[in-house]
Every structure is written in structure tokens, then in C-alpha cells.
Design a protein around this nucleic acid. Structure first.
Lengths: 248, 248
DNA sequence: CGAATAGTGTCTGTGAGACAATATATG
DNA sequence: CATATATTGTCTCACAGACACTATTCG
């Protein structure tokens, strides 16, 4: 029955060849109300001239998540100890034909970077031509050819994020540690690709999970906005069911 | 840098050794109001005498999901063309130390089998001693040692299912195509490990997604229950946000 | 002052949960 | 009839969305 029982005994490399293991990264950050991700324009076969997600091999002494963090650091050149980031596993893509050159199985990861909403983190400072560049995600999906199964990975990442911010505060991972509500609102608008969320209702809905710092920040026009922090109970793997009555 | 760009050029098997790829299966079915899953008692090192999830290698010409279906069929001996089943990917476990014998990366899958709530599908009819046996999942978690990282896989599977049935009709995958509401209610009670859900409220909440067949089925005591089918819009990857106004 | 924006107040509709009431079966 | 269960009815509460209103800033 080929259970794990038979590892050493029956393992036949001809029948069960090993595979190369990689990670692919969907790194997201928001400017204005638009989602951006780094892409690499491929310079050679296969999928020459198409866009690809950054990624790389999983080393012999690390797991996939570690490889994702490492690639993220290499790609962005960010000091991730300082710059807040969120990495989570998305799904694993293992079709035998996904890379025509060899059998490559990839564990796709979603990474979220905090921005102030006005600029994107600089990518791989001082690297060569094949480095990654930030591109608006929807435009890429609409107008660009994507290499391998990266279109599927990308759309899965967007759907996952769109769903997750409905019932968690994951959106706060895309915003500085201290932020005004309009910044968080712009994140929701970017992820949901929607026009305008009602600012009043948004404020009310979020306020329960936030702590005011007492400070305010001025904008170019209008009243200054209060600065908040996420209440610690709502951070990290934020409780999936906050106000649930625990039964039903 | 290490992008996929450098595959053929820089690929150094010493630096990036390949890995064995397997699937591990959490197969769930309900009897009464209790969740059960098949486990295999290990007969040899490592984790001798501990319980393990069924699983097996991913073949050279199949992807992980195909391997999961294949292992499910081999393990249960079920004709999956007939017997309804649901398989979805859970997560990938890739710690270098997860199997002390060699580097094994496993794509964990969740499989749901339909039952009438009174009996479990027979497992691997006519196989040897190391075959899998149905065991109540909570008791296993409370009282048994689990091999490898299978405890983590199992708890992840339960949490995922518990969350998913909140906003989808995935629970219907654990019940026959035509079913009475008490059967579906028992599934919720099993997955949420809860005493009793209010039958009246449960009926109301579900009825919108169901179609009555017009038939009724008698129970040992009490009024007969109406037989339903899941409305097709609510099946498969059931709509994640049914009554959502699409713009928050 | 006029425009833009933050944050609050109000109203309404929906849906969940507690619980009662009614209907229908078994023994 | 006593008991168990299904299904419907009611009431209440919480929350989301629409929208008006006030307050605060810039130019």
C-alpha cells in the first residue's frame, strides 16, 4: 500500500524519483490604493520575456519557510529584523510539467511588507539587470504574460489575502506599526480593488481592535487623523473568530 | 539573488540537493457525532509503536493531489468514482529533521468521505497487518503518540475544517448526497466537538442553501425528517462570501 | 470662507441565538 | 398517553451599511 512504513525497504528511486524543491514568493506592498509586487523579466528559455515571481531553491538545512524569508531578504535587501514583514505558506505546486526543464516542486509563499502608503521598499539595491522590480499587480495580471504557473500562484495569493482581511487584521501587516485609519483603509481598497469604503463605518468597525496613541497626524487637506496601534490580541495569527460565541 | 532564472546554469546538487516528495492524508468521516480518521500503527523505527497518518510517495508523472487521490483509493479500497470524496491540499511540511532517515517533504492533504453517520467505510479490504484502522480523532490526540510531525498535521486539519464549515457547506461532503438535517447537524457537532446545536436555528440557517427532495425519512423516535440536497451553487469550492455585498 | 477629511450619530435591515409552540412519529 | 424529534414562530441583540452631521484643518 505504499505507506511511509516502507521507506528504507521499498524505496526505489526509479519509481519515486526525487524532486528539486523551491519557493516562489508573492511579495505585496501598497502605494496609494494599489497593490504592487516584485517581478523578474525572464531573459532566457523557458518563458523568455515573460514575468516571473521571485523565488529560489530550498537549501539542505532549511525548511521552505526559512527559504522564503531568506529569499525575501536577498530580493528586497531589507533588514527584516528591522523592517516588519509577514510570511505565510500559500500552497504547493507540483505538476510534473510546470517546469519543462526538470521536475521542480514549489512551495508558494505570501509575504506582506509594511509601507507608509507613499513609497515602496527599494529592491535589491546594487544588483544586476535581472533584479526584480515592483509592478502593479492588477496591471500585470491584465496585460502581461506570466511564466510557469505563476499566474495561478498570483491569483491564489490575491484571493487568499482578500478573504483573510475580512475576518482578521492581516491588513495591518501592510502598514507601519503606528498608522492612521486612512492608511489601513487604503490597504483594504487596494486588496479588494474597490473604489471607496465608507470612512465612518470603517472607523467604527476597526476601532475595537485598535489602541489610540493619543497623537494625530496632519494630511494635506482636512482634519488630522488619529494614530493607532493594533491591539496585541489581534496581531500575529490573529484570532479567527473574535466575537464568536464559541458554540455555533 | 537565486531566482529561477539560474536553474540550468547554477544548479549545484551539492548545494541544493533534491528531496523525496510524499503526501500525508488526514481522511475524515463521521459516525454518530464523532470524527474518525484512519491511522497506521508503526511496526519499526523510527517512531515504532506510534500512530502515523497514511501516505505515500508522489510518483514521477503525477502531482501531489493525484498522489493523494491514489493513496486514498489504495488505502480505503473505495471506488472513488462511486463513493463521493473531497480532497484538498492542507500545507507542506519540509523541516529537514522531520524524518530522521532522509530528507522527506510532505504535502499534507485533507480528505472527506461521505457516510450515513452510522458506519465507516471499510478500509483496505483484504490487506495485511499494517493496514490502516479507523480511530476517533480526539482520543488519538489525547492519548496516543503520533509519528513524525503528524500531530501537527492532524490538528491543522481539524482547525482548517472547523473554520471552513463556518462559512461554506464543506460539511456536506461528510454526508450522503441526500441527507436529513440531523445528519448534517451531527457533522457540525463532530467537527466542532460540541454538545448540541439548536436544531431549530440550525434548520433555519441551512435551509437557504438546500433543496428539499419532498421525501421524508423516519427515525427511531420523533417526527420524520425531510430529505435535502445541497443547492448546486453551494457545492464544490463553495462560494466564500454568499451574502456579501461585494463592496464591504 | 470653501473644500476636504476625520470621526460620530442615527436609522434600518439582516441574521444569529435563546426559547417557546406546534406537529408528527414510536411504543 | 408519554416521549422524542422536526419544524416553525417570536423576541432580542449585535452588527453592518447608508447617510447625515459636526469638527478640524489648509489655502
Amino acid at each position: 500500500m505504499s505507506t511511509q512504513e516502507r521507506f528504507l525497504e521499498d524505496y526505489d528511486p526509479a519509481e519515486y524519483p526525487s524532486v528539486a524543491l523551491t519557493v516562489d514568493l508573492v511579495v505585496l506592498a501598497v502605494t496609494g490604493s494599489t497593490l504592487h509586487a516584485p517581478f523578474i523579466r525572464r531573459g532566457m528559455h523557458p518563458f523568455k520575456d515573460a514575468l516571473a515571481l521571485p523565488g529560489g531553491f530550498v537549501g539542505p538545512d532549511e525548511d521552505a519557510e526559512h527559504a522564503a524569508w531568506r529569499e525575501l531578504a536577498e530580493e528586497t535587501g531589507l533588514d527584516l529584523a528591522t523592517h516588519r514583514a509577514h510570511v505565510e505558506q500559500l500552497a504547493t505546486y507540483s505538476s510534473p510539467e510546470r517546469d519543462p526543464r526538470m521536475r521542480v516542486v514549489s512551495v508558494a509563499h505570501l509575504a506582506l511588507l509594511a509601507t507608509d502608503g507613499r513609497s515602496l521598499p527599494e529592491l535589491a539595491p546594487g544588483s544586476d539587470a535581472s533584479a526584480a522590480h515592483w509592478k502593479p499587480v492588477r496591471e500585470v495580471l491584465d496585460h502581461e504574460e506570466l511564466a510557469f504557473d505563476h499566474r495561478e500562484i498570483l491569483t491564489t495569493a490575491l484571493e487568499r489575502l482578500a478573504g483573510k482581511i475580512e475576518y482578521t487584521l492581516t491588513a495591518a501587516k501592510l502598514v507601519p506599526e503606528e498608522f492612521a485609519l486612512y492608511q489601513l483603509r487604503h490597504v483594504y481598497e487596494a486588496v479588494w480593488n474597490t473604489e471607496k469604503l465608507d470612512a465612518g463605518n470603517f472607523t467604527r468597525k476597526m476601532s475595537g481592535a485598535l489602541i489610540g496613541t493619543g497623537r494625530k497626524v496632519a494630511r494635506s487637506k482636512g482634519a488630522p487623523a488619529a494614530v493607532f496601534t493594533v491591539r496585541s490580541e489581534y496581531l500575529s495569527p490573529p484570532m479567527a473568530r473574535p466575537a464568536a460565541t464559541s458554540d455555533h
